[in-house]
Protein backbone atom coordinates (compact mmCIF):
# COMPACT_ATOMS: atom_id res chain seq x y z
CA UNK A 1 0.00 0.00 0.00
CA UNK A 2 1.81 3.10 -1.24
CA UNK A 3 -0.26 5.53 0.73
CA UNK A 4 -0.36 3.66 4.02
CA UNK A 5 0.97 5.56 6.99
CA UNK A 6 1.98 4.30 10.41
CA UNK A 7 -0.02 6.32 12.90
CA UNK A 8 0.24 6.27 16.68
CA UNK A 9 -2.62 7.63 18.75
CA UNK A 10 -1.92 8.37 22.40
CA UNK A 11 -5.25 8.19 24.23
CA UNK A 12 -6.29 6.65 27.54
CA UNK A 13 -10.02 6.59 26.88
CA UNK A 14 -10.73 3.42 24.88
CA UNK A 15 -14.02 4.60 23.35
CA UNK A 16 -12.49 7.82 22.28
CA UNK A 17 -9.48 6.06 20.83
CA UNK A 18 -11.59 3.72 18.75
CA UNK A 19 -13.69 6.58 17.43
CA UNK A 20 -10.52 8.35 16.30
CA UNK A 21 -9.20 5.16 14.71
CA UNK A 22 -12.47 4.73 12.84
CA UNK A 23 -12.40 8.24 11.40
CA UNK A 24 -8.77 7.82 10.32
CA UNK A 25 -9.54 4.52 8.59
CA UNK A 26 -11.83 6.44 6.26
CA UNK A 27 -8.78 8.25 4.88
CA UNK A 28 -6.88 5.10 3.89
CA UNK A 29 -5.47 1.72 4.89
CA UNK A 30 -3.22 2.96 7.64
CA UNK A 31 -1.29 1.00 10.21
CA UNK A 32 -2.77 2.46 13.40
CA UNK A 33 -1.60 1.86 16.98
CA UNK A 34 -3.19 3.13 20.16
CA UNK A 35 -1.07 3.74 23.27
CA UNK A 36 -2.22 4.88 26.70
CA UNK A 37 -0.10 7.43 28.53
CA UNK A 38 2.18 5.01 30.38
CA UNK A 39 5.68 5.65 31.67
CA UNK A 40 8.27 4.91 29.03
CA UNK A 41 5.77 6.26 26.51
CA UNK A 42 8.44 7.93 24.39
CA UNK A 43 10.27 4.63 23.97
CA UNK A 44 7.09 2.76 23.01
CA UNK A 45 6.26 5.40 20.42
CA UNK A 46 9.76 5.35 18.94
CA UNK A 47 9.77 1.58 18.64
CA UNK A 48 6.76 1.80 16.30
CA UNK A 49 8.59 4.26 14.03
CA UNK A 50 5.41 6.19 13.26
CA UNK A 51 4.92 8.69 10.45
CA UNK A 52 2.36 10.55 12.49
CA UNK A 53 1.70 10.75 16.24
CA UNK A 54 -1.61 12.18 17.42
CA UNK A 55 -2.24 13.24 21.01
CA UNK A 56 -4.79 15.37 22.85
CA UNK A 57 -3.42 18.84 23.58
CA UNK A 58 -4.76 18.56 27.13
CA UNK A 59 -2.91 15.30 27.80
CA UNK A 60 0.09 15.95 30.09
CA UNK A 61 1.95 12.98 28.51
CA UNK A 62 2.57 15.27 25.55
CA UNK A 63 5.74 16.42 27.30
CA UNK A 64 7.08 12.86 27.19
CA UNK A 65 6.41 12.61 23.46
CA UNK A 66 8.02 15.97 22.84
CA UNK A 67 11.46 14.52 23.51
CA UNK A 68 11.19 12.36 20.39
CA UNK A 69 11.12 15.53 18.35
CA UNK A 70 14.53 16.39 19.79
CA UNK A 71 16.16 13.10 20.73
CA UNK A 72 18.07 12.22 17.59
CA UNK A 73 18.98 15.80 16.80
CA UNK A 74 17.29 18.43 14.67
CA UNK A 75 19.73 17.98 11.80
CA UNK A 76 18.61 14.40 11.37
CA UNK A 77 15.88 14.03 8.73
CA UNK A 78 14.29 10.95 10.21
CA UNK A 79 12.93 12.71 13.26
CA UNK A 80 9.34 13.24 14.23
CA UNK A 81 8.57 16.90 14.32
CA UNK A 82 5.76 19.11 15.30
CA UNK A 83 3.14 19.50 12.53
CA UNK A 84 4.51 20.46 9.14
CA UNK A 85 5.93 23.94 9.53
CA UNK A 86 4.85 24.92 6.05
CA UNK A 87 1.31 25.28 7.33
CA UNK A 88 1.07 27.35 10.50
CA UNK A 89 -2.65 27.87 9.95
CA UNK A 90 -3.32 24.15 10.07
CA UNK A 91 -1.26 23.81 13.22
CA UNK A 92 -3.24 26.63 14.79
CA UNK A 93 -6.56 25.02 13.83
CA UNK A 94 -5.34 21.69 15.19
CA UNK A 95 -4.35 23.17 18.53
CA UNK A 96 -7.63 25.02 18.81
CA UNK A 97 -9.46 21.79 18.12
CA UNK A 98 -7.45 20.14 20.88
CA UNK A 99 -5.16 17.84 18.93
CA UNK A 100 -1.42 17.97 18.50
CA UNK A 101 0.23 16.06 15.72
CA UNK A 102 3.84 15.09 15.30
CA UNK A 103 4.77 14.32 11.75
CA UNK A 104 7.96 12.87 10.37
CA UNK A 105 9.85 15.55 8.54
CA UNK A 106 10.12 15.20 4.79
CA UNK A 107 6.79 13.44 4.45
CA UNK A 108 4.75 14.85 1.59
CA UNK A 109 2.15 17.22 2.91
CA UNK A 110 -0.68 15.93 0.69
CA UNK A 111 -0.14 12.44 2.12
CA UNK A 112 -0.72 13.46 5.69
CA UNK A 113 -3.25 16.23 5.13
CA UNK A 114 -6.32 13.94 4.95
CA UNK A 115 -5.24 12.23 8.19
CA UNK A 116 -4.70 15.48 10.06
CA UNK A 117 -7.96 16.89 8.67
CA UNK A 118 -9.86 13.83 9.87
CA UNK A 119 -8.24 14.05 13.30
CA UNK A 120 -9.07 17.74 13.56
CA UNK A 121 -12.70 17.09 12.61
CA UNK A 122 -12.97 14.31 15.18
CA UNK A 123 -11.45 16.40 17.96
CA UNK A 124 -13.68 19.36 17.06
CA UNK A 125 -16.65 17.07 17.44
CA UNK A 126 -15.41 16.01 20.87
CA UNK A 127 -14.91 19.57 21.91
CA UNK A 128 -18.43 20.48 20.83
CA UNK A 129 -19.82 17.48 22.70
CA UNK A 130 -17.89 18.42 25.82
CA UNK A 131 -19.18 22.01 25.69
CA UNK A 132 -22.74 20.84 25.12
CA UNK A 133 -22.49 18.38 27.99
CA UNK A 134 -21.23 21.06 30.32
CA UNK A 135 -23.96 23.48 29.27
CA UNK A 136 -26.66 20.87 29.81
CA UNK A 137 -25.23 19.91 33.17
CA UNK A 138 -25.14 23.50 34.28
CA UNK A 139 -28.67 24.19 33.08
CA UNK A 140 -29.87 21.19 35.07
CA UNK A 141 -28.10 22.31 38.21
CA UNK A 142 -29.48 25.83 37.79
CA UNK A 143 -32.99 24.48 37.42
CA UNK A 144 -32.65 22.46 40.62
CA UNK A 145 -31.32 25.34 42.69
CA UNK A 146 -33.99 27.77 41.37
CA UNK A 147 -36.69 25.27 42.34
CA UNK A 148 -35.29 25.01 45.87
CA UNK A 149 -35.12 28.80 46.19
CA UNK A 150 -38.70 29.12 44.96
CA UNK A 151 -39.78 26.53 47.53
CA UNK A 152 -38.10 28.46 50.33
CA UNK A 153 -39.80 31.70 49.30
CA UNK A 154 -43.21 30.09 48.95
CA UNK A 155 -42.94 28.74 52.50
CA UNK A 156 -41.37 31.80 54.12
CA UNK A 157 -43.52 34.49 52.52
CA UNK A 158 -46.62 32.47 51.79
CA UNK A 159 -46.70 33.43 48.09
CA UNK A 160 -47.45 31.57 44.88
CA UNK A 161 -44.85 29.92 42.71
CA UNK A 162 -45.18 32.62 40.03
CA UNK A 163 -44.71 35.32 42.63
CA UNK A 164 -41.67 33.55 44.05
CA UNK A 165 -40.07 33.34 40.61
CA UNK A 166 -40.91 36.97 39.87
CA UNK A 167 -39.26 37.99 43.13
CA UNK A 168 -36.08 36.04 42.27
CA UNK A 169 -36.04 37.58 38.80
CA UNK A 170 -36.46 41.11 40.10
CA UNK A 171 -33.71 40.66 42.69
CA UNK A 172 -31.40 39.24 40.03
CA UNK A 173 -32.10 42.20 37.74
CA UNK A 174 -31.55 44.73 40.52
CA UNK A 175 -28.24 43.15 41.49
CA UNK A 176 -27.10 42.51 37.92
CA UNK A 177 -26.82 38.77 38.61
CA UNK A 178 -28.25 35.60 37.14
CA UNK A 179 -31.41 34.12 38.66
CA UNK A 180 -29.46 30.97 39.47
CA UNK A 181 -26.84 32.96 41.36
CA UNK A 182 -29.43 34.75 43.49
CA UNK A 183 -31.12 31.40 44.14
CA UNK A 184 -27.84 29.80 45.16
CA UNK A 185 -27.14 32.63 47.62
CA UNK A 186 -30.62 32.26 49.09
CA UNK A 187 -30.33 28.50 49.42
CA UNK A 188 -26.93 28.61 51.11
CA UNK A 189 -28.11 31.36 53.47
CA UNK A 190 -31.16 29.27 54.33
CA UNK A 191 -28.93 26.24 54.94
CA UNK A 192 -27.00 28.29 57.49
CA UNK A 193 -30.06 29.71 59.20
CA UNK A 194 -32.30 26.69 59.40
Amino acid sequence: MANALTIVIVEQDKDRASAIVESLRETGEHDIHVLAGESGLARSVMRLEPDVVLIDVADPSRDSIEQIALASGPMDRAVALFVDHSDAQMTKTAIEAGVSAYVVDGLQFDRIKPVIDAAIARFQLYQRMRTELETTKRALEDRKIIDRAKGLLIKARNISEEEAYALLRKTAMDQGKRVAEVSRALVSAADLLL
Partner: peptide, 15 residues
Protein backbone atom coordinates in the same frame (compact mmCIF):
# COMPACT_ATOMS: atom_id res chain seq x y z
CA UNK B 1 -1.80 24.88 30.75
CA UNK B 2 -1.70 21.06 30.91
CA UNK B 3 1.89 20.68 29.69
CA UNK B 4 4.96 22.69 28.71
CA UNK B 5 4.61 21.75 25.04
CA UNK B 6 1.01 22.92 24.97
CA UNK B 7 1.87 26.15 26.81
CA UNK B 8 4.64 26.83 24.29
CA UNK B 9 2.28 26.15 21.36
CA UNK B 10 -0.43 28.40 22.79
CA UNK B 11 2.19 31.15 22.95
CA UNK B 12 3.64 30.38 19.53
CA UNK B 13 0.25 30.37 17.79
CA UNK B 14 -1.19 33.39 19.53
CA UNK B 15 -3.83 31.95 21.88
Amino acid sequence: APSWSTLRDMLAFGQ
